[in-house]
Amino acid sequence: MAERYSSFAPGGTAWFLQRVTAAFLIVVLAFHFFLLHFVNHAWEIEFAGTQQRMENVGYFLTMVLFLITATFHGVNGVYNALVNQGLTGTSKKVVLAILVIAGGALIAQGIWVALVMQGFM
Rank of each mutant, 00 (worst) to 15 (best):
Q51S: 14
I98T: 07
K93S: 15
I101Q: 02
I98A: 13
F60M: 05
N80V: 03
N76V: 03
K92F: 01
G49W: 10
V100M: 14
T71I: 05
G86A: 04
M63G: 01
L87I: 06
S91E: 11
K93N: 14
I98N: 06
S91W: 14
I98C: 09
A81P: 02
G49Y: 12
F66D: 05
V64E: 04
N76Q: 13
A81G: 14
Y59A: 06
L96N: 09
T90C: 06
I68R: 03
L99R: 00
N76S: 14
S91I: 01
F60W: 08
T90I: 15
L67G: 08
T88R: 15
E55P: 00
V95H: 05
A48F: 06
M54R: 06
A48L: 13
N76A: 11
L61H: 02
Q51L: 10
N80I: 01
A70G: 15
V100R: 06
N76T: 10
H73L: 08
F66E: 05
F66S: 02
Q85A: 13
V94L: 11
L82K: 05
K92S: 12
V78F: 09
Y79F: 15
T69G: 15
V78R: 00
F60P: 01
T71P: 04
V78Q: 02
E55H: 12
V94S: 02
N80H: 15
L87Y: 09
K93Q: 14
E55C: 06
Y79P: 04
L87A: 02
L99K: 06
V95T: 12
A102T: 09
